[in-house]
């Protein structure tokens, strides 16, 4: 229980800090004034139309990507599986760009196409990896292949039709500088529903960790739950990509951090992923806004700076643990 309380306190502080930090010369008093219904028009615009939507987007994307990573890792029995590495983010990103060509300015189509892209990527990776034995390596290699294909096709679209994205760097690296409220309004409720599905179905994950045969013997419908989890993980990643573009590593770093910090029950770990993931991405976004103030970095850049050494460290740690047996 203590870790949940700490996580909630850190999350609250991160939200308060994100509300106060940034351009606009708004101090704590002004923020409180605006939140209690006062303040001038400029202050209200900054708080209600810029900072709060951005905070909401960062929190929901952080939670979505972290839980997506957790579900993929447990279901594929592979700690380095994540929506980024498995090509799900790039699949969603490609379809977001396609939606900008086929259905310009239609936020609902942007979200739906992101879901479709994420699901397509997950299905293709599943087919490719099952055709090659469904080993940990084949899953990751299939994901890398699909990810590369998605990235290449996305770059082709951006090169041929640059108007499909407002900010190329922000889309490719991922960020919250220009998330339209119309998209956030649609994606956040979907993310909430999917997180509830993840929490409800998490009980089966504890059994599936014992192996498919043992779990079946205990009464768990392994195929049904695995399908549900992979679809949920894909849709969560798709919803996040429709808002913030191709932010990587959140789904890798947060679930592994939660595993390392203890707690063996999946439902509790998913709750922790929601709290920690949302806090982590919000802090990263706030850092992206403040580090080179008044210039702003894409949040995805911060994630890449943290994520790359983390991935290398995980591989080295795994290698050391396996030692001579590998």
């Amino acid at each position: 229980m203590r870790r949940y309380i700490i996580a909630v306190i850190v999350l609250i502080f991160a939200i308060i800090f994100a509300l106060l930090a940034g351009n606009g010369a708004i101090d704590t008093e002004n923020v409180l004034e605006v939140l209690s219904g006062g303040g001038n028009r400029a202050q209200r615009t900054i708080i209600y139309q810029v900072r709060l939507p951005r905070i909401l987007a960062a929190l929901s994307c952080g939670a979505a990507l972290s839980v997506s990573g957790y579900l993929l890792q447990d279901n594929l029995n592979n700690v380095i599986a994540s929506p980024g590495l498995l090509g799900i983010n790039n699949g969603a990103g490609l379809f977001v760009l396609l939606s900008a060509i086929l259905f310009p300015y239609q936020s609902i189509m942007k979200c739906l196409m992101a879901f479709l892209g994420a699901l397509c990527a997950a299905v293709i990776v599943s087919i490719l990896s099952s055709g090659t034995g469904m080993s940990k390596t084949s899953v990751i290699l299939s994901g890398v292949a699909i990810s590369s294909l998605g990235a290449t096709l996305s770059q082709m679209i951006i090169s041929v039709k640059p108007e499909t994205v407002a900010d190329k760097a922000a889309f490719s690296l991922g960020g919250f500088a220009s998330v339209p409220w119309t998209v956030t309004r649609m994606a956040v409720p979907v993310i909430l529903i999917l997180l509830i599905v993840a929490v409800i179905s998490a009980g089966a994950l504890d059994l599936m960790l014992l192996g498919d045969e043992t779990a079946t013997g205990l009464g768990c419908n392994v195929k049904l739950y695995r399908g549900t989890h992979i679809v949920t993980a894909s849709l969560l990643a798709g919803a996040a990509v429709s808002m913030c573009g191709l932010i990587g590593f959140v789904g890798l770093i947060v679930p592994n951090f939660i595993r390392m910090s203890g707690g063996s029950k999946s439902r509790g770990s998913i709750f922790m992923c929601i709290l920690t993931g949302s806090t982590f991405l919000l802090i990263s976004d706030t850092a992206a806004r403040l580090l080179f103030f008044p210039y702003e970095l894409p949040c995805g850049l911060i994630m890449n700076v943290i994520g790359t050494p983390f991935l290398v460290w995980m591989l080295v740690r795994k290698r050391k643990r396996l030692g001579a047996y590998d």
Binding site: L210, G211, E213, T214, T216, G217, L218
Partner: peptide
């Protein structure tokens, strides 16, 4: 699955 597992329990060969 649950109905069956209230009548029959099963322990496979490979235990993790």
């Amino acid at each position: 699955g649950k109905e069956r597992s209230r009548k029959v329990s099963y322990l496979p060969q490979n235990l993790k």
